[in-house]
């Protein structure tokens, strides 16, 4: 379980998170939506300690995310970064099985490679991609390699920052199914950021909308369409008319 309690974060004078409160139950899939630049990525990073909130607490299974053994803590997580963040000094398969090649989860090399190829297959990539370098891949392929890396060590909690951005509709569908599968079959807890409303409906158990530094609305995905919240309604319909200003 992940719980945000009154989380605040600013960069210089820019206030990004201004009191975020949110609960994500174990084994469920939460999708975060919200305008560009509202702090969705910052919210994910603050759980992992990549961004340090000024005030507020983030609890994971009731324990403060910043306390205790950070390595053991991070070993439970997988993260897909918005930009992929692949290591361009190593081939794709070593990227995917990075965790399995060193540290506490270390395995023999050929085993790690097999796992990498299997994970690549799950994100729709063929084995011959394994020996290419990230710079030789298209943007969408890089995204999917990042996804494969995030799930490679079968973490309990997975964060996806815009997993389907830059993918064709069919591939986006494959990825949506994969994320859904990881939650229902492996019992993982997922937190996904996306701008793609088809994705939201395919992946989410619950939806939260971040706006003006706070969670503007949160609830089950089924209630999203008749929430009565003017911000959410405008966001879903993609209308320029409404309380959310188009110029931010």
């Amino acid at each position: 379980m992940i719980s945000f309690q009154n989380v605040h974060k600013s960069f210089g004078p820019k206030k990004v998170l201004q009191g975020v409160n949110l609960e994500i139950a174990k084994g469920t899939s939460m999708v975060i939506i919200g305008g560009s630049g509202t702090g969705k990525s910052v919210l994910l990073k603050s759980v992992l300690g990549l961004v340090t909130p000024e005030t507020g607490t983030i609890l994971v299974d009731g324990k403060d995310a910043t306390s205790g053994d950070h390595d053991a803590f991070l070993a439970r997580f997988g993260m897909l970064f918005q930009g992929g963040a692949l290591f361009d000094s190593m081939p794709v398969w070593q990227n995917v099985s990075f965790r399995l090649l060193r540290g506490s989860l270390k395995r023999p090399k050929h085993e790690a490679r097999e796992i990498a190829i299997e994970k690549l297959r799950r994100v729709g990539l063929t084995p011959d991609v394994a020996d290419l370098f990230p710079s030789e891949l298209s943007g969408g392929m890089q995204k999917r390699v990042g996804l494969a890396r995030a799930i490679a060590a079968e973490p309990e909690i997975i964060f996806f920052d815009e997993p389907t951005t830059g993918l064709d509709p069919i591939m986006a569908g494959v990825i949506n199914d994969l994320i859904r599968e990881i939650v229902t079959e492996m019992g993982a807890t997922a937190m996904t950021i996306t701008h793609d409303m088809t994705s939201v409906r395919a992946i989410a158990d619950n939806v939260a909308m971040l706006h003006d530094g706070v969670i503007q609305w949160t609830g089950p995905v089924a209630q999203m369409d008749d929430s009565g919240d003017p911000y959410l309604t405008q966001f879903i319909s993609g209308s320029a008319e409404g309380p959310i200003e188009a110029v931010r």
Binding site: K45, L48, G49, L50, D71, L74, A75, F77, G78, M79, F81, Q82, G83, A85, L86, F87, D88, S89, F98, R99, R102, G103, S104, R149
Partner: peptide, 20 residues
């Protein structure tokens, strides 16, 4: 240049999340 590029493209953050 290499490490700065890694930082800018979030590869340093990715290292951290991979327990490294």
């Amino acid at each position: 240049a290499e490490i700065a590029t890694m930082k800018v493209t979030e590869q340093i953050d990715a290292l951290t999340t991979l327990s490294t």
